[in-house]
Simulated scan of single mutants.
Amino acid sequence: MTIPPIPAAGDAALDHALRAAIDGKTKPPGSLGMLETLARRIGLIQQTVQPRIVEPALLVFAGDHGVVEEGVSAYPQSVTWQMVENFLAGGAAINVFARQNGCALRIVDAGVNHDFGARAGLIDRKVAHGTRNFAREAAMTLAQCAQAMAHGAALVAEMPGNVIGFGEMGIANTTSAAAVMHALTGLPAAACVGAGTGLSADGVRHKQQVVERAVALHAGARAPLEVLAAFGGFEIAMITGAMLEAARRRMVLVIDGFIITSALLVAARLQPAILDYCVFAHCSDEHGHRQLLDALGVQPLLQMGLRLGEGTGSVLALPMLHAAVNFLNEMATFESAAVSNRSAG
């Protein structure tokens, strides 16, 4: 599969202009903290000192995982399709937060083990009725992985705005994300595996053992796409493709929690410059997320104890993106407000 190159987001001249514009506002240098960093990042992505937030959207991808057969989740697989129904009915947390923050929401069947039929509001891109059990065989073929990534890219190409977030739903997908993280970073499985939907301590230990055995079974999977095919879900592969296309289109990527960041890990191993286009919404309470953020060398905006998924953290971070571009565009400068910039004494 050919992955088009992603260029660095900005250049030295634009970076200097953005820093000057930010420092020229009526405030002490650096006093808006991470909002200043965020404004600069969005400006670099959009290649302007007057960035805008246009029609933000969130794509929620749902898919099932064969590894659920290993008893790695506190919930049955049927919860995946039931939660998709909840999304379509507008009753999930992500529906509430998207409405609140003026964010368009699209629900995608990437590979749910359920037949929904033609449904208003559901985008059918089902690759198969869930992946295979990666504790015994590869989760998907390389061809299926490429198909899922292509679907994700095509969906992003249809989005009209310049800010995009990604959500997911899939019972056992924290196990998939942990295996991807373990395989690609080399961090111990104990650093990657968490409680997911609420496993007991014994359940977490069992899940860790499943991940360790699976990664050993697929030791020959080393390249990013090989790892993604061996352990990923159709929703994770679709998100990876969507992220690569979004960065290629110079969109702002708002990254949610553990599963979404595992998809980004694959994308970053394929195209490292994609990190220039990312805003990390929050640090999840899922055990492996902090270690994964550290492995990527990035800093999240929020720390709220979230671990729901669905893209909730991304949508909750949207007001911060609006604040960042609004202060850069609307706040007075020392010169325009006739305010002294530095103390004469």
Rank of each mutant, 00 (worst) to 15 (best):
T2I: 12
I3M: 11
I6V: 14
A13K: 13
A13V: 14
H16Y: 03
A17G: 08
L18A: 10
A21L: 06
K25D: 01
K25M: 08
T26R: 07
P28M: 12
P28Q: 12
M34P: 04
L35E: 09
A39Q: 01
G43F: 09
P51C: 10
P51N: 08
E55M: 09
L58W: 00
V68I: 14
E69G: 02
S73D: 07
A92D: 05
V96E: 08
A98L: 07
R106Q: 10
D109H: 07
G111S: 09
D115E: 14
A118L: 12
A120V: 12
A120Y: 03
R125T: 01
G130D: 01
E137R: 11
T141A: 06
A143L: 11
Q144I: 05
V163I: 13
H182C: 14
H182K: 12
A183F: 01
L187F: 05
P188H: 07
A189P: 03
G194T: 05
T197F: 07
S200D: 13
Q208G: 06
V211G: 00
A214H: 01
R222G: 05
A223S: 11
L228H: 04
G232R: 04
M243Y: 04
M243P: 00
A247W: 01
R249Y: 06
V252F: 03
V254G: 00
I255C: 07
L264Y: 08
A267K: 06
Q271H: 06
A273C: 13
D276S: 11
A281W: 01
H282F: 06
H282K: 07
D285W: 05
H287F: 11
Q291W: 03
L301T: 01
M304F: 03
G309F: 03
E310N: 00
T312W: 00
G313P: 03
E330R: 14
A337S: 12
A337D: 11
N341I: 00
R342E: 13
G345F: 13
